[in-house]
Amino acid sequence: MTYQEKKSIVTLISAILIFVSYCLYMYPQFPEWGLESTETFRFWGSFVLILTLVTIIAHIIISIIFNIIFRITTKEKEPSFADELDKLIELKANRNSFFVFIVGFLLAMGSLIIYQPSQVMFMILITSGFISDVTGSVTKLYHYRKGV
């Protein structure tokens, strides 16, 4: 298995672990009072911002650890650049990822049309963000293994 395949798997697993553990951490803090109160919107705002920050920092740390372990175990140096195949796969992954997120965004807007509470809209948005991230990683893994 090459560096890119291993990295795609690590990114996929870390994305799932970060999201699930963050949700489990935030779940008890969910405000129980008024569904449309300012505090509820503040909760969702901080949920998204902190999740973004945590995800970026965790991905950087995991990437550094992965590179160190890769160098030690394989005695190979990780590629320092992205060639044409990497860029092509990245484009395909981004396309699929954006498509999933846009579908989620439209579903979230649709939930408001059918008078669902704003929590449902936020949940759909956040979930679609997570699924789009997973879709991007799965697309990369698929194309690195099966070709373009």
Binding site: Q4, P79, F81, E84, L85, D86, Y144
Partner: peptide, 26 residues
């Protein structure tokens, strides 16, 4: 594969994909 990748200016992954017939190069 790594030596060829270095000469061609790509990653080893690309040479692997080419040899497997999984990728048509530019």
């Amino acid at each position: 594969q790594q030596q060829l990748a270095d000469k061609a200016g790509v990653t080893r992954q690309t040479i692997v994909a080419l040899e497997k017939g999984n990728y048509s190069p530019s």
